[in-house]
Simulated scan of single mutants.
Amino acid sequence: MVKAVDLVGERWTFLVLCEALAGATRFSEFRARLGIASDVLAARLAKLVDSGLLARQTYREPGQRPRDGYCLTDAGREMNVVLSALQEWGGAHLSDTAPTVAYRTGDGRSVQVRFVDGEGAVVPSGDVRSERV
């Protein structure tokens, strides 16, 4: 748990990851959406690449020099569950946080983050405990 929090627990790292999950791939997109300083953004993108949550992907606009874009890896896409759970919790328990709704891309039906047992039954949070194995 400590390693995971060290990786994504810093505010800007978390927000950069949220924007990547929302579709941002270019440095300029992250900067415009977040209003983040270029040096801070570069450091956070490098951290996410080094950790394997993002991968660099070179692109080139006509008449421009090649630039790095950033795409989510499988590990980065799996962070959607973590971020969605945090957004869901914030919307339910923090008065100054707007509720969010997650939708299934195929049919637009709303989805929620929940604990589910091996048979697919939803398990209440109070009935779940975690331990290291």
Rank of each mutant, 00 (worst) to 15 (best):
M1E: 12
R109P: 01
A92M: 13
A121C: 06
V111N: 07
S38P: 11
A20I: 00
I36R: 05
T73M: 09
W12C: 10
S38A: 15
C18H: 04
E78L: 15
L72K: 04
S125M: 08
D107S: 06
R44T: 06
G90E: 06
E88W: 01
L83V: 08
V5I: 14
V82N: 10
T97V: 15
M1N: 04
V82H: 08
V128K: 07
K47L: 14
A24P: 00
G23S: 03
L72E: 07
T73P: 02
V116T: 11
F27I: 06
R31W: 04
V82P: 03
V128E: 02
C71Q: 15
L15D: 11
A121F: 07
P124E: 12
E78R: 15
L7C: 13
D127K: 11
D127H: 09
A98E: 10
F30G: 00
V82T: 15
T25W: 00
V49Y: 02
R60C: 04
D117C: 01
M1H: 12
R11Y: 08
P124F: 07
A102W: 05
D96H: 06
V16L: 01
E19V: 00
P99A: 13
G76W: 07
R65G: 12
S28G: 07
E61H: 09
E119R: 13
D6M: 12
T97W: 08
V8H: 03
F115Q: 13
A20W: 08
A75M: 09
S51Y: 02
C18T: 11
V116P: 08
G108K: 01
A4G: 08
E61C: 01
G120R: 06
P124H: 07
G106C: 09
D39T: 15
R77P: 01
L7Q: 13
G35A: 04
L21W: 02
I36D: 00
V40A: 13
G23D: 03
A22C: 06
C18R: 09
V116I: 15
Q112Y: 08
D96P: 00
S95T: 10
V49S: 03
S95I: 11
V123K: 00
G9S: 08
V8I: 15
E10C: 04
A55K: 14
M79D: 01
A32D: 15
G9M: 05
Y103F: 13
V82C: 04
G90K: 07
V81Y: 07
A24S: 11
E78P: 00
V128N: 04
L72V: 09
A55G: 06
D68Y: 14
H93A: 08
A92G: 10
E88T: 10
P66H: 02
G120K: 05
H93Q: 13
E19P: 01
L83I: 14
P66E: 12
V101T: 15
